[in-house]
Design a protein around this nucleic acid. Structure first.
Length: 568
RNA sequence: CGGGGUGUAGCUCAGCCAGGUAGAGUGCUUCGUUCGGGACGAAGAGGUCCCCGGUUCAAAUCCGGGCACCCCGACCA
């Protein structure tokens, strides 16, 4: 049985103005509607109303996980550092991993994710092919020592994640488990009324192969994705491939040195020589886990740090600092791999396929014309390390890519057997052969999803909750509550709502009508019912749909039916 | 970790440049009037002016150091 919640007794404060620190719409609404309250950077308390909203989001995700055949369980947030050393990720996560010690000086972490814990569990339980496939999930607080928490619930240091892990006997059945999760994610975001698109993604520190992110396209997002409107290609900028402009063709010509006084940038070089930027070779210096790396790429393109990092299998990749540049005798602004010794050279394919590029002479104020790969310079590694940008050609069709910012709400990927090997998750197959399980993992940030729901569903007056996620089904505004006929009607209304299983927030406060209506708009329940002498005089209860309906008088006995009919 | 900004009442902010009794709006309490889109009047409560140190007869204000929060970047399953 539900009991109507009285606002006069409810632990809730709305704010007329949002605190100055909030800039994003979701952040402002969370604070103004009193759903959360800050404790420290990246840490928020949820009020009863905010917690109801979180529970609704969680329940929606739980429903779809269960429908997809996943089984809910619970793993510890506090974990021994040992399992992180075992997977090698204590190093990969680095400073993001929150470490602590117990009273016996043993090392622990507050887990940022749960592959290690689930793998330990699976290793103990999975024995036979009859135990597979299985998909397990949980809702759990994750802890990350983020360098910069931001945007309210967008990037937190402690947050709730739904993380699921699938265990399959082989890659073929993993495809099915993966697809089931992928489909469930599509339904979750559709029901949450958040338009999220799947894009190809980098699998990052967690490792693995195929990986897709569900991105909510939103200008406040911190991820960049590239989209092709012609064929539907969509990828995270970290991962995106593209069709570069073709090189300027020509027969290899002899190398020629030219004086280029004061020319240190690609733009200036092209202008100085009257060439296009794609006729130049750009040099970029990196330090990969301390090792110097010389990177060269065609002048009109930029280096994709993520692709480079993955290619080098580096944990830490950063631009080489000035001291190291000098130490290695590099001439910034006039560097090229010609005659370079003492460090690894990595080249983007663009620089190796184009003939007669202009590159640095490795001395100030001079460049070399007509450099050709193989003849004048070589590289230890040649691969695609170019960054896709708006306007580049789509890799799959004649279209052009468009860059958009977005928020990563969910991530699904095929891990393979790396954790199964590290934690020894093996099963006996039908032929009596012992084999490693093949894993997938699937995450959704619940707090961030809540923020996205608000980003996607609000107007200038406040929140417009999707029906499935509204903390309450109905917001009842009581005016003139001290009058007997109003009190009587309210009692009947509450009884009817309760009998129908509808949860109601009843504004019985001693406030002016205007203040109550403003708060109702701000809090944003899908249906507002006004019980007042005026409405009763017109024959019933006033009904208003939050998402843009007109006011309408509905006879009291019909109210529940009207709400159930699903207006709005 | 680099760059920028902000710390004064629960919230939004003024006061700081030019040192001298700590302010406004809103919110909160009480009383009265009001009662359909953040009503009106009156009275009231509410402050470590982020912290520490310095200069000065005197510091919210000037100087030095620190901390916190926000934004951009770096970083980030």
């Amino acid at each position: 049985m539900t009991v109507a919640t009285r606002m006069s007794r409810y632990f809730l404060k709305t704010l007329r103005e949002a605190p100055a620190e909030a800039e994003l719409p979701s952040h402002r609404l969370l604070l103004r509607a009193g759903l959360v309250s800050p404790l420290a950077a990246g840490l928020y308390s949820f009020t009863p109303l905010g917690w109801r909203a979180m529970r609704k989001v969680e329940e929606l995700v739980r429903e779809e996980m269960n429908l997809a055949g996943a089984q809910e369980l619970r793993l510890p947030a506090l974990q021994p550092l040992e399992i992180w050393d075992r997977s090698g990720r204590s190093e990969i996560f680095g400073g993001v991993l929150l470490r602590l010690r117990d009273r016996r000086e043993r090392d622990f972490v507050l887990a940022p994710t749960h592959e290690e814990a689930i793998s330990t569990l699976a290793a103990a339980q999975v024995q036979s092919y009859r135990d597979l496939p299985v998909t397990l999930y949980q809702f759990q607080q994750k802890f990350r020592d983020e360098p910069r928490p931001r945007g309210g619930l967008i990037r937190l240091r402690e947050f709730c994640m739904k993380d699921a892990y699938s265990f399959d006997p082989d890659w073929e059945t993993l495809d099915e488990s993966y697809q089931a999760m992928f489909d469930a994610y599509g339904r979750i975001f559709a029901r949450a009324e958040v338009p999220a698109v799947p894009v190809e993604a980098d699998s990052g520190a967690i490792g693995g192969k195929d990986s897709q992110e569900f991105i909510f396209l939103n200008e406040n997002g911190e991820d960049e994705v590239l989209l092709c409107s012609a064929c539907g290609y969509a990828a995270n900028a970290e991962k995106a491939v593209f069709r570069a402009d073709p090189p300027v063709e020509g027969e290899p010509a002899p190398v020629e040195r030219v004086d280029t006084p004061g020319v240190t940038t690609i733009a200036a070089l092209a202008r100085f020589l009257g060439l296009e930027e794609r006729q130049t070779a750009k040099a970029v210096f990196y330090s990969a886990d301390g090792e110097p790396v010389f990177v060269t790429i065609r002048g009109d393109l930029e280096v994709n740090d993520t692709k480079l990092r993955n290619l080098l299998k580096a944990v830490e990749l950063e631009p080489m600092d000035d001291a190291a540049v000098a130490r290695h005798g590099l001439v910034a602004g006039s560097a090229s791999p010609v005659g370079l010794e003492g460090m690894r050279v990595v080249a983007d394919v663009s620089a190796t396929e184009a003939p007669n590029l202009v590159g640095g002479a490795n001395e100030p104020d001079a460049h070399l014309l007509n450099l050709n790969y193989g003849r004048d310079w070589t590289a230890a590694i040649v691969d695609d390390i170019a960054l896709a940008e708006s306007g580049h050609g789509c890799p799959h069709c004649d279209g052009r890519l468009e860059a958009r910012s977005g928020m990563e709400l969910g991530h699904v990927f095929k891990l393979g057997s790396m954790y199964a090997e590290a934690f020894d998750i093996r099963y006996l197959d039908g032929e009596g052969e012992r084999r490693h399980a093949v894993m997938g993992c699937y995450g959704i940030g619940v707090d961030r999803l809540l923020a996205a729901v608000l980003e996607a569903n609000h107007d200038e007056d406040g929140i417009i909750w999707p029906r499935t996620l509204a903390p309450f089904d109905v917001h009842v505004v009581v005016l003139g509550g001290e009058q007997p006929e109003v009190a009587e009607a309210l009692g009947e209304l509450e009884a009817a709502l309760e009998a129908a299983g509808l949860e109601a927030l009843v504004d019985d406060r001693d406030e002016s009508p205007g203040a109550k209506f403003k708060d109702a708009d701000l809090l944003g329940m899908p249906v507002r019912l006004t019980v007042s002498p005026r409405a009763l005089g017109r024959g019933g209860i006033e009904l208003r749909i939050r998402d843009g309906g007109d006011n309408e008088i509905v006879p009291l006995p019909e109210v529940v039916e009207r709400i159930g009919a699903g207006d709005g």
